[in-house]
Design a protein around this nucleic acid. Structure first.
Lengths: 261, 261
DNA sequence: CGGCTTATGTGCCCTGACGTACAGACCGCC
DNA sequence: GGCGGTCTGTACGTCAGGGCACATAAGCCG
């Protein structure tokens, strides 16, 4: 984040990992957009118009069924892209995508994504890699939902968000978190209360500040570390297998996603 | 399955959907294997040696974390293939794959899968489509785990299995089902007891016979129908787009940035 | 400043699922 | 045909979380 202009598409990990030639071909078609919290980026069943590459924003993938039951499946920030179904070949998806945390993103028209997909280049390879990262997130959510207490899940959620944000603050209401975790708002109030009592976080109406990140990690269920480790592994394996095309991203920090302060 | 020989690779939906030319290229490399229930097809973290295309067998994708908590993520039978990470580019995966229901499958060496992937042909396209189906299964599991009672989840699980099996009988113990659903064995006993009392199923030590499929569907949570519908849609969309490679929707409403509610 | 909206805190009862312990039943096998 | 292991049934107490009903407080805006 340091040597880059304030708003550079390469703050996004996928775009940053593109070989220079591929990036050059695409950069002219990238459009910068500001994502407002709460915005519905993609309605269930609608066709995709754009693929989004967040830099400072976070987008939540949500599934809601007909009875109104819903849960967050995964979140995407600077580590990935929104619109995986475009890459997998499905025209649309029943998943909803909403802006969980406001910020900036770059977007590419769906036609361009399809073109790149059919071309079979780096963008496709990286996108498929991220698809696997998404599956990893979802898989751990299944286990986590089933076996772990709400306060631990809250830790995991906070840490995941934090990894995609610049500071140490997450700006969401407990109501929103409850919606994401698929639990009652009161359950979040209670869990957050515990964490605050333990000095790990501090919050005021719609803003949660993380005081003790290490403590939060210790308090979180192992799912957080597991997802993190697996996604790092996937991305590194991907980067390594790129060896055929010379690695030309010399000064893009590969570990820009590791705040680890 | 009627006009086919007893053991034909084309009993598998993916292989069946391949254009004749592609199928002809692959058929010589397909090896038929018998999968024994309980076998660990793929250990977490191990590299893939084969991709499996079940015909009568069912393979369960399972994630277990370090603390021993685990849950089934999805099941694959004649509708798909086992080894999606090969197609997505990951070398391995933390998911375990075990044979849930014994039967036949055809397998392809990992190198061949990779070759086909890099070639970017029909097999890749179909595999990616199935990857999306897997994500759909997983997504609904997240919501379902969170919001639905065990007996309804059991209905869903039974129906999903049944869809991949030839008869109306599922050969598993309640213990195994409990492991898949991530609940206690006693919870399954109780749920199964209810279903039997309602005349929907009948079971004896390790064998469950479905008497009233329609009743079971009515009893299941909507997740079953939702997953089913979405997977059908995905596969049909894929089949349709097989002729014209580019299938982007060109003119769509531009006001995507609508605030939620 | 005062009023209103929205976010958060608290309490109550209820239920579904867990942990544990054990009893009974089935089935394959010698 | 009886034995033994496995699978299934039942019965506790315990508890996290859901549903509901309010109480309080924090920020916004005129």
């Amino acid at each position: 984040m340091m040597g880059l202009p304030i708003h550079d598409p390469r703050q996004n990990q996928i775009l940053a990992a593109l070989p220079a030639r591929d990036y050059a071909r695409l950069v002219g078609e990238l459009e910068r957009v500001t994502l407002v919290p709460g915005t519905l980026l993609h309605a269930p069943g609608a066709p995709f118009e754009f693929a989004y590459f967040p830099t400072t924003a976070i987008v939540a993938l949500i599934l809601a069924n007909d009875s109104g039951a819903s849960a967050e499946l995964a979140m995407t920030g600077k580590d990935g892209l929104v619109g995986i179904p475009l890459v997998l070949g499905g025209v649309s998806t029943r998943f909803a995508m909403t802006v969980q945390s406001g910020g900036e993103a770059w977007r590419l028209p769906a036609e361009v994504m399809c073109r790149e997909r059919d071309r079979g280049g780096s963008l496709q390879r990286l996108s498929l890699c991220y698809a696997e990262a998404l599956m990893t997130q979802m898989a751990h959510s299944i286990v986590c939902n089933r076996h772990h207490l709400v306060d631990r899940q809250l830790c995991r959620w906070l840490l995941s968000s934090l990894d995609l944000l610049p500071g140490n603050q997450v700006d969401v209401t407990q109501e929103v978190i409850a919606h994401m975790l698929g639990v009652r708002r009161e359950a979040v109030t209670e869990a957050a209360g515990k964490l605050q009592a333990e000095g790990l976080i501090r919050y005021r109406r719609g803003h949660i500040t993380v005081n003790d990140r290490a403590g939060l990690e210790a308090r979180a269920c192992e799912c957080y570390r597991a997802v993190r480790a697996e996604c790092d592994r996937l991305f590194e394996a991907q980067a390594a297998s790129k060896c055929s095309s010379i690695n030309c991203t010399l000064d893009t920090p590969r570990n820009s996603l590791m705040p680890r302060r």
